[in-house]
Design a protein around this nucleic acid. Structure first.
Lengths: 323, 323
DNA sequence: TTGAAAGCGATACCAC
DNA sequence: GTGGTATCGCTTTCAA
């Protein structure tokens, strides 16, 4: 691709020394004549020599790198998680190779197929069945985040928002909200976030209503529009995540609702961007950077030969201004 | 670290074949008996065998990976650039190793020192002097983004917002704004974005005023508060970037200004989050994902042996609602 | 179909 | 100080 590779031997030949000497010069070992070293370094530079990271890695058995597979880096939730993971990885001197699958199953597959040969372990949000993932990553440590059904093969990080959602509903009810809806995600089955909502509503003998939403601002807008069309008396809304909530809030205001006076909005995730909107978004908050950090920890354990386990991160109600 | 490594020979011994046969089985080559293959695959799995990516990479001289060094992944500007880079890299089947230096010079140095042995080229936002970067990356292709003074050693991507800023000032002036200020960044020297602003103001014989701001929402808030304290008659503000603008807009409203009626706000970058705030943020827009894509292109050229060049991305005024 | 042997590019432990 | 040699783990001819 980039022409013929310049090896350590080329440098040696050109500098008139053996290639072991070149290695010494390059790695700043002691036992070498200063002038020889300089000469070698100079010729190496002239020739544009660059050591092969593979050859080097082969002999020095250190250096760990982790693949981080994310559906969409532009979604701030994933960015926050990634940020936490990068931070935790740095502390261990690990390298993180990031892949954005653009919410696309095909790209997820192709990523899976190429990631295996590049990294020592994988962390990711996957939509493929476990069997498929296992097939592509055979033997390699894998940590899945946010997947709700867990097999024993992979490390796993779950979010437990049950108490947080109950607290959210309690808060809304205490504020006199009568008609509390939910914008869930738009997959085949209802999310566990919806389950928590449904149960909390049931406990309080409230009737809810739900609408699926694509996970984007626009998705939230559309879903909110549909929701208000179906239920004009809605006075509070809980959403699958903050991105949807922001869209929903925006749409509610477009349709003449004041937030929070006419319409209370509570998201899920507790992202930093929730502070940028007006009013600041209340949310069931996940410690997103912690999620990334715990994922790295789990990888560390798997790499050390321990068996996969499930970590649970609790999410808690955080009130800002929208409810 | 993780105990003794299981090699291809271990698998071979255990399966009662030569190690070349194991290789065949693993790589799905044709010339092998189906039952043998299955047996090998099974024992490999049992033993928990995982091929060494280094040994494999050494032999198959393909696979390129790029280091992407970013000051702060939580800043949406960098996220957008990263997203563009990841996308472009995927099209070439390149791997991207991402490093977040947390706006910290020390972390930038340590990143620089570890990145060299892991990747084939580097893209990044650096604050270190070119000489330092050169030292750590000797010989390796490097593309710098956004650095304003350019040496010949590195590829470079510049943003040209001159016309965009002039258009912004023109727009504000046409709207009857009299007192147009700027919130610049808070480094030693004024940014070129400020220069463009100053020149545009001069051309129109308008007197401006400037205030430094830290690159965060809070930084924008503080700077806007200080600015309004010093110049209560301000009726428009241009900012170094969108993040600052969002903070500034928020603060302006806290201090009783209506946006855009009393105070027009124009940011710089044109980030997607500008659409989430109320009113949507007008901005001098950079095609951020394009920046990432062009960086990858430049790396491609450097890797192919071409000499470094400077790419210029033009930024243009994009009106949304805040001005 | 399978096994033997030759590298890939670099490091490390020896002698010299 | 410097060079020889083994070695890292794997893929790929080339014989058998």
């Amino acid at each position: 691709m980039t022409g013929k590779r310049i090896t350590i031997r080329d440098v040696a030949r050109s500098a008139g020394v053996s290639y072991q000497t070149v290695s010494r010069a390059l790695n700043d070992k002691g036992e070498i004549d200063v002038s020889t070293k300089q000469r070698v370094l100079d010729t190496a530079r002239e020739l544009g020599y660059r050591p092969s990271r593979f050859a080097r890695g082969l002999v020095r058995q250190d250096s760990t790198s982790i693949g981080l597979v994310i559906p969409n880096l532009l979604n701030p939730y994933f960015t926050e998680v990634a940020s936490g993971a990068l931070d935790a990885a740095r502390k261990r001197d690990w390298h993180v190779v990031v892949y954005d699958t653009a919410d696309d199953a095909g790209q997820e597959q192709s990523t899976l197929s190429m990631v295996g040969s590049q990294v020592d372990a994988v962390i990711g949000y996957f939509s493929q069945p476990d069997a498929v993932i296992d097939q592509y990553t055979s033997g390699m440590p894998v940590v899945q985040i946010g997947r709700e059904d867990v097999t024993g093969r992979f490390g796993s990080i779950q979010v437990d928002g049950e108490d947080g959602v109950h607290a959210a509903i309690a808060h809304l009810a205490a504020g006199g909200r009568r008609r509390i809806g939910m914008l869930d995600y738009d997959y085949d089955e209802p999310s566990s976030r919806y389950q928590w909502y449904a149960e909390a509503m049931r406990e309080r003998r409230l009737t809810g209503c739900v609408m699926p939403a694509a996970q984007s601002i626009e998705g939230g807008q559309r879903a909110m529009a549909a929701m208000l069309e179906a239920h004009p008396d809605l006075d509070a809304i809980l959403t699958y995540n903050d991105v949807i909530a922001i869209g929903a809030m925006f749409q509610a205001r477009l349709l003449g609702r004041r937030v929070p006076a006419d319409m209370a909005v509570i998201g899920f995730d507790g992202l930093a961007i929730g502070n940028m909107v007006e009013p600041p978004l209340s949310s069931v908050r996940i410690d997103t950077r912690q999620v990334g950090a715990v994922a790295i920890d789990q990888v560390g354990q798997l790499l050390a030969g321990q068996r996969p386990e499930v970590a649970v991160i609790r999410a808690e109600l955080m009130l800002r201004g929208s409810a």
